[in-house]
């Protein structure tokens, strides 16, 4: 019953705010004005807006410091301990990681996953956005459809995929059978996809496993909509005249694309590349929801490995060590992208 009163309160409150809009705005204005003049009277504000900045930054940065930044310091700190033995280990955990095949396996899976998802997502979403940009009618409809997976929770969507991809009696296998194709184990197939495609000519441990490819496919499906929307926004922002001018000058369609559209779109590509790289290195939900964690090494990326070290083996120090390595890798990768791609980015 309590919750209904709460709801009622919200409704009444919002209704009265709407009704009293004008006087409220006036009050707000005068309050803001007063606050502003307070800030400006501060002596130390003459050269800069420090007092104002501290006030505005405090809520957001306070929370980030406690829940975003402190964990990093904590991870750095406990990575120097052998937490199982309860002793200071110095660089011991880092040395252990260097010799740990599962750590390197995790890196391998992370890299496969990044290579599998980032270019495919970028290309696919650019292609779709480009087509949407060309057609006139139905753009809104298609954009909505393509964005749909992105708004659904990974847990719910992965549940659907898991059932569809059941190894013995899933819908996808029924489809394969109907098409006369060999059925597959999908999410529990640990052999390499190259091995399966070449009929055993390539060794089963080479390349990503079919299970990993299923996860990659899931994430391409799940995340492409984000790219589509952003590319579309970028494309719409390109002045039409530029393109038309190029066409009048006799540029062929692909020349328009490479000489006009892509350079103008480069900030968008740059942004998406950096964001999706960070996301790819932090991927967890799809791995966790599609496979059972820690069951098989072929779908164990670094984050899953960290997770199992922290929560299943209770190896806090070592888990933190791997986490620190991962953070360093992400920072490094972002800096490299910044340097390499940044040179190519074209700002008006």
């Amino acid at each position: 019953m309590n919750e209904w009163f709460g709801l009622l309160g919200i409704v009444i409150a919002s209704a009265s705010i709407l009704a009293l809009r004008q006087p409220l705005v006036a009050i707000l204005d005068s309050v803001l004005e007063r606050l502003d003049s307070r800030f400006e009277r501060q002596v130390w504000c003459r050269q800069s807006d420090t007092a104002m900045a501290v006030t505005l930054l405090f809520p957001g940065l306070g929370i980030l410091a406690v829940f975003g930044f402190a964990p990093l310091i904590y991870a750095l700190y406990i990575s120097l301990f052998d937490t199982r033995a309860g002793a200071f280990a110095g660089p011991g955990n880092y040395v252990r990681a260097w010799h740990d095949p599962e750590f390197w396996g995790g890196i391998r899976v992370t890299i496969y996953y990044a290579i599998g998802t980032i270019p495919a997502t970028l290309l696919l979403s650019f292609g779709v956005a480009w087509l949407l940009f060309r057609i006139g009618r139905g753009r809104g409809f298609f954009r909505t459809v393509y964005f749909l997976p992105y708004v659904t929770s990974a847990v719910a969507a992965a549940t659907v995929w898991r059932v569809l991809l059941r190894p013995h009696s899933g819908y996808v296998n029924a489809l394969m059978e109907a098409l006369g194709l060999p059925t597959q184990l999908w999410l529990i197939e640990q052999r390499g996809v190259l091995h399966l495609l070449t009929n055993g000519w390539i060794g089963p441990e080479v390349g990503p496993s079919l299970a990993l490819c299923c996860i990659i496919a899931f994430d391409i499906w799940h995340a492409s909509g984000f790219g589509v929307v952003i590319f579309l926004a970028g494309l719409t922002a390109i002045p039409r005249e530029l393109e038309e001018a190029a066409i009048v000058d006799g540029a062929r369609p692909w020349q328009v694309m490479t000489r006009v559209v892509l350079p103008l779109l480069s900030p968008t590509v740059f942004f998406l590349a950096i964001v999706s790289a960070i996301k790819a290195f932090q991927a967890f939900n799809s791995f966790y929801a599609l496979t059972n964690t820690a069951r098989s090494t072929d779908t164990q990326n670094l984050v899953i490995y960290i997770y199992s070290q922290l929560y299943e083996s209770q190896n806090y120090g070592y888990g933190a060590t791997v986490a620190v390595c991962l953070c360093v890798a992400i920072v490094g990768l972002t800096l490299v992208q910044w340097r390499v791609l940044g040179r190519w980015v074209h700002y008006e």
């Binding site: 310091i73 406990i78 120097l80 301990f81 937490t83 199982r84 309860g86 806090y316 120090g317």
Partner: peptide, 9 residues
């Protein structure tokens, strides 16, 4: 983070 208590030990 209540430093001084690194993990379990």
């Amino acid at each position: 983070t209540g430093c001084g208590v690194p993990g379990g030990p």
